[in-house]
Nucleic acid binder design. Structure first.
Lengths: 212, 212
DNA sequence: CGGAATATACCCGTTAACACGTAGATTTTA
DNA sequence: TAAAATCTACGTGTTAACGGGTATATTCCG
């Protein structure tokens, strides 16, 4: 008999954790190693717990799932990440798929069976994406290709969103674990692409183009 | 021995339903009568199933939890409604509390214990609100009372509009034939009234309150 | 393979936008 | 008419956000 798949769960909402917990703990091939409502906390827990798969929500405060996934991938390359999301929010996912920081992405409206299937597949070295996610990614791609000459990178969009939330460069740097200089550079590039130099113009553009 | 509390669950996300299901079905005093990812569907199910408490998400598409709660309260006045929410979104809740269409409101970041407690209390004819919800409601009230109190003078509104059009202080001064210092003072007063110091906050406020 | 794109980071100098004051002139309102 | 609100204006000091560079490591893609 093979070892159980050891899983860590992180989600803002305790109820979702409890849910996933009793959902998965019934399965004989799975063992819940640890769980938390804080991305920071789970990251530290991974040091002391042997974990095969990290189940993480995407939309979390203050550290979102994207950042967490990236950090985990750097620090613990053996841990696979399965992202859970409420909606098929495309932007960020795109980045994650490209840089290998996640091995799977499913919407929270999937059933128990599909979730188990996804976990099994990922545990065996595979990759799993919900159909809805793939479709929505494709749409996102189309939209980006045809719509505008201006193409912001995933990182730039992250930064635009943080600007919109009234973070200054220092706060953004802290949030994304990068240098303040780097944020300045991103900001420069954003304004260069926009051909503007006012935050207000940026915000209005972002609203119009549904970057937020 | 008393009858079990019969519960119906509705939530956009199957995973949350599954979660709540296995969370609650362990409890001997509770029985899950039915569940669905569709508000429409659950509403019809209530005709054929005897249900004591309806557990419903607030943010759902296309029929949201508020509408559902109201309809249920009209059609089946004996069914109690416990609303679940991701965030303490104030607006809608206020209304529901006032017109008695819900008997409880909890955030999804509550734990298993608190959820059971809430259900028990409601089943016995009580009312249950998370502390966070009450706090956030109070804040919402304060905010509304306060924000309605913000009165910008005609001159200040002129200046806000010029700020929104990406004019800097010098340009505004030129436009209004006043000193740059005066513009600075107006700006200071505007931010003081807003209790903020970021242009972005100002712009968002202006849009929300149709100052532009 | 090799160029293009991306993300990261630093230096230097400038300046618009702040914070925290004060204060006179005019208009509105109680 | 007296008090309150509004509009006007200035001083001083600080700093976040620029513009304009350069540069390196990595990844993507033809």
């Amino acid at each position: 008999m093979k070892d159980k798949i050891r899983i860590a769960i992180v989600d803002d909402h305790q109820i979702v954790i409890d849910g996933l917990h009793s959902l998965l703990s019934n399965d004989p091939s799975i063992e819940i190693a640890c769980s938390s409502t804080s991305a920071q906390e789970i990251f530290q827990m991974l040091q002391k717990n042997k974990v095969d798969i990290l189940l993480t929500d995407i939309m979390m405060e203050p550290m979102n799932g994207v950042t967490l996934a990236k950090k985990v991938h750097e620090e613990y390359p053996l841990i696979k990440v399965l992202a859970l999301s409420m909606s098929g929010a495309g932007d960020m996912v795109d980045e994650m798929i490209r840089n290998d920081s996640i091995q799977g992405y499913v919407l929270k409206n999937i059933g128990k069976q599909e979730l188990l299937q996804a976990i099994q597949k990922i545990a065996n070295g595979g990759i799993y994406y919900s159909d809805e996610v793939l479709i929505s990614l494709e749409k996102e791609n189309d939209r980006q290709k045809q719509s505008d000459h201006i193409k912001f990178t995933a990182r730039e969009i992250e930064i635009i969103r943080l600007i919109e939330r009234e973070n200054n460069n220092k706060q953004i740097a802290g949030e994304l674990f990068i240098s303040e200089r780097t944020v300045e550079t991103h900001r420069k590039n954003i304004f260069r692409k926009l051909d503007s130099n006012s935050v207000i113009g940026l915000i209005k553009y972002a609203y119009e183009h549904k970057l937020i």
